[in-house]
């Protein structure tokens, strides 16, 4: 069986979320890295493989993004993927989630995976929806935000199933999903392992296929910013909220006095 893991390169959170306390603004320039949520998807793939209930021949990391995105693939391989696929084409730039999901689904179709795993959200996209789009194109059952995943082997003509738990609007749901399936995992599902030095060194030597839009047989009228159904027109600043007070804790007794005074002033205590 084959597991494909969707991974994305995003601005590095540690660098990205730098706030200028004077202006309250975020500085988003700087490093890019593997979306931290996707490391949980790779770890989930590794655990399914190591669990041995299903015989997993291969774990393939798949990304869509500019040339720099190969770094996310190398990271994914260092964390356990056997090889990777990079869908990259200028024509894909500016794709919305629907177009992104379509393109990823076509790249995945070539691989014919039994399980597709994703992260709970991309750190920059904040959509948590790519999985649902991909699943519809691949015509596979799907679930997002899964925090527990047990594998049930195929038996008596019933295909193998994943028993998935996730939190939805009314509490925790348990859903049985037949393979092949698309599952996005929540960050509570596991503690991703650290890559070994050997794995980091070896990552660049593993097979990496680069696909153009044509290679993946993408319909050119369905991809890129120009063809996305949702058009992002303008951006404006949100209503300005007065900046809060900030205390840096140096002397905790003093800090506590300040907090108590602040609460008392507002008659909260």
């Amino acid at each position: 069986m084959k597991i494909c893991v969707l991974v994305k390169e995003v601005p590095d959170a540690a660098v990205q979320k730098r706030i200028d306390l004077a202006t309250g603004r975020m500085d988003r320039s700087g490093e890019r890295n593997l979306n931290p949520y996707d490391t949980h998807a790779i770890e989930a793939a590794m655990q399914i493989k190591e669990g041995g209930v299903l015989e997993i021949d291969e774990i393939v990391a798949v990304t869509m993004g500019p040339s720099t995105a190969v770094r996310a693939l190398h990271k994914a391989v260092s964390l356990g993927a056997d090889r990777s696929v990079h869908l990259s084409d200028d024509a894909l730039a500016g794709s919305d989630v629907a177009a992104t999901g379509y393109a990823l689904a076509e790249a995945l179709r070539r691989e014919a995976p039994d399980i597709v795993l994703l992260g709970q959200q991309s750190d920059d996209g904040e959509c948590y929806t790519v999985g649902a789009v991909v699943a519809d194109h691949l015509e596979m059952p799907s679930l997002t935000q899964v925090i527990k995943l047990d594998v049930e082997p195929a038996a008596d003509g019933v295909p193998a199933r994943l028993l998935c738990e996730r939190q939805a609007e009314y509490g925790y749901d348990t859903v049985a999903v037949e393979l092949p399936a698309v599952i996005s995992v929540g960050d509570a599902i596991n503690e991703p392992r650290y890559p070994s030095l050997k794995a980091i060194m070896g990552a660049k030597k593993k097979r990496l296929d680069t696909l153009s839009a044509a290679d993946a047989d993408l319909d050119p009228t369905k991809i890129g910013g120009e063809h996305s159904g949702a058009r992002w027109t303008a951006a404006k600043a949100p209503p300005k909220k007065a900046a809060g007070e900030i205390i840096e804790d140096e002397d905790t007794a003093e800090t506590v006095d300040q907090i108590v005074a602040w609460l008392a002033e507002r008659k909260l205590i």
């Binding site: 989630v97 629907a98 959509c127 929806t129 789009v133 159904g229």
Partner: peptide, 17 residues
């Protein structure tokens, strides 16, 4: 989110979340 995104794929529709 899951339904809206799936529907966008099915109908080739733009989606904003």
């Amino acid at each position: 989110f899951e339904i809206g995104a799936g529907l966008a794929a099915r109908l080739d529709a733009g989606v904003a979340m």
